[in-house]
Simulated assay, not measured.
Amino acid sequence: MAHDVSVIGLYILDVLGRPVERIPEGGNVEFIDEIRLTVAGTAGGTVVDLAKLGLNCLAVGAVGDDEKADFMLATMERFGIDVSGMQRLAGVPSSATILNVRPNGERPALHMRGASDHFDVPPSDYDTVLAPPIVHLGGTGLLRRLDGEPSRILLEEAKRRGATVTFDLIAANAETIVNVKPLLPYIDYFMPSVEEAGAMSGRSTVEDSAKYFLDAGVKCCVFTLGGDGAYYAHADGTRFQLPAYEIDVVDTTGCGDAFDAGFITALHHRMDPETAVRFAQAAAGLVATGLGSDAGIRSFEHTLDCMKMWKVKGR
């Protein structure tokens, strides 16, 4: 069966614990309620959520030749994800993060870059990697070998072949725009957080940030605003902001990745823009209710039900 989406980029093993109020001094021990291992990253977290939402996914990234890779590949296969596009690299560790999740949901992180820095997509793989109707590139900023001109060539080829291109990054700052700006004409849906968009554009408002990226060639900006919801700005002039859902936040790890997955799923189902953003918000909200980047998401139908039933802030 043909893939619905190709998810290219950053694949990480997350080791999460909660609630962490403090790191014990010396060799002392503190007890916490929950520890999880998850496939994460701006590609890894997204592809798992997409699979849980019912899409047939091709995972395209890199892991090392270690026990972390064994877990990540086995987990993705268990969700029905095609991992034939995953490179297993000898001599380097899989990318991984330790997250100490605070009682308020904040998550200070310790990250080891690893295999994702050595990942690239050779032109010989384009026929497979760029065959699906939707191509998602996630993780620019932590893809040392793929960042920059290789990503521009990849996305230009994706568009030449008729794909819809969605894009997200990680830990963006003012310098990140150097790698991102050449990609913008080949991006249909640009989905950073508003903080990342502001840092890269140098603009102070969500409207001005969106205008910056639209003027640079992006077809549509879909910015996450945290507890303030999401903002949509299309080159055709469509603009709207939707408030967030009222939920009890446990952990915000992977909420942006889940938003991406929800929005891509909405594109697959040809939802109208407002419904697409609402569905993406529901997916992100579900992830925020548990520990880890795939927490809460069960299925397309369950997410759709939550989208319809949950209360929206201020209403």
Rank of each mutant, 00 (worst) to 15 (best):
K308Y: 08
L155D: 00
I264S: 00
D117R: 04
E246L: 13
V60A: 07
L73F: 10
L58C: 08
G9N: 00
E156Q: 14
S151C: 11
D294V: 15
E246Y: 10
E106R: 13
V178Q: 13
I23L: 13
T253S: 10
T164E: 11
N100V: 13
L10S: 12
D236L: 01
V180T: 01
L184Y: 02
D305W: 14
V101A: 09
F223C: 10
E196L: 05
H268M: 03
T164Y: 12
V250T: 09
L50V: 06
V312E: 10
M307W: 04
I134W: 01
E196M: 10
E157C: 05
V312D: 08
A96V: 14
P123M: 06
G296M: 04
A261D: 04
M86N: 12
G227M: 10
A199F: 13
A131H: 12
E274N: 11
Y245K: 05
G148D: 07
E149W: 06
Q241S: 15
R22F: 13
K308S: 10
S151Y: 03
A59R: 00
K52W: 05
T42M: 13
A131Q: 13
T252W: 08
G80F: 01
L130M: 05
F167E: 02
T253I: 08
I153D: 11
L146N: 03
R203M: 15
F240Q: 04
K159P: 03
L99W: 12
M72I: 15
G296S: 07
G105I: 02
R161K: 12
N100Y: 15
R161E: 09
T289A: 07
L169I: 09
T38K: 04
E175W: 09
D248R: 14
A158C: 06
A266H: 02
G229R: 00
F119P: 00
G229H: 02
E21C: 11
A90M: 11
C255E: 07
L89C: 07
V101H: 00
L267F: 00
M1V: 12
I32C: 05
F279I: 09
T275A: 15
A216F: 06
A283P: 06
A158M: 07
K181G: 03
D236I: 02
